Computed example of a mutant assay.
Amino acid sequence: MNEKFSFKKLIQLYEEIISVNHRTEIARELRDEDDLFLFLCLSETLGLPNPAYYYTLELYPYMLEKFHEWHLRMGMDKSPLTGFRCC
């Protein structure tokens, strides 16, 4: 039991050491992926065809919370969508 605990701790320490220098890069990549996903889900409302529009409709309530941060990060002072009022 003690060997497994020390091995788990060693693995966690190794992962932390590896990711220390790349935390900002990892955070930026995750933010970029979130931005792309949000853009793809909202592309139909922006006027771009989205083949998965029907399947992404149920995600809108969850995306409303992040939408304000997203459009500010994209350089838009106000919401580009008439249906989403966040500002």
Rank of each mutant, 00 (worst) to 15 (best):
M1A: 13
M1K: 11
M1H: 11
N2I: 15
N2V: 15
E3H: 09
E3S: 08
E3I: 06
K4G: 04
F5P: 07
K8D: 14
K8N: 09
L10G: 07
I11V: 02
Q12Y: 00
Q12T: 01
L13Q: 14
E15D: 08
E16H: 03
E16W: 01
I17D: 10
I18A: 08
S19V: 01
V20T: 11
R23G: 02
R23I: 15
E25K: 07
E25Y: 00
I26C: 06
I26W: 01
A27M: 04
A27Q: 15
R28Y: 01
R28D: 10
E29L: 14
L30V: 12
R31T: 13
R31M: 07
E33W: 00
D35T: 09
L36E: 14
F37N: 05
L38F: 04
L38E: 02
L40V: 07
C41Q: 09
C41F: 07
L42A: 04
S43H: 02
E44A: 03
E44V: 02
E44Q: 09
E44K: 08
E44L: 03
T45S: 04
L46F: 15
G47D: 11
L48W: 00
L48H: 00
P49K: 15
P51S: 03
P51V: 11
A52S: 13
A52F: 00
Y54E: 15
Y55R: 15
T56A: 04
E58P: 06
L59M: 13
L59F: 01
L59W: 01
Y60V: 07
Y62W: 07
Y62D: 14
Y62K: 09
Y62H: 07
Y62A: 12
L64R: 04
E65K: 14
F67V: 06
F67L: 10
F67I: 08
H68G: 09
H68P: 09
H68F: 05
E69H: 04
E69R: 01
E69Q: 10
H71I: 06
H71W: 02
H71M: 02
R73F: 00
R73E: 13
R73I: 11
R73H: 03
M74T: 10
G75W: 00
G75D: 07
M76V: 08
M76D: 12
M76S: 13
M76K: 13
D77E: 14
D77C: 02
D77H: 00
T82H: 06
T82D: 14
T82W: 01
G83A: 06
F84Q: 06
F84A: 03
F84N: 05
C86N: 11
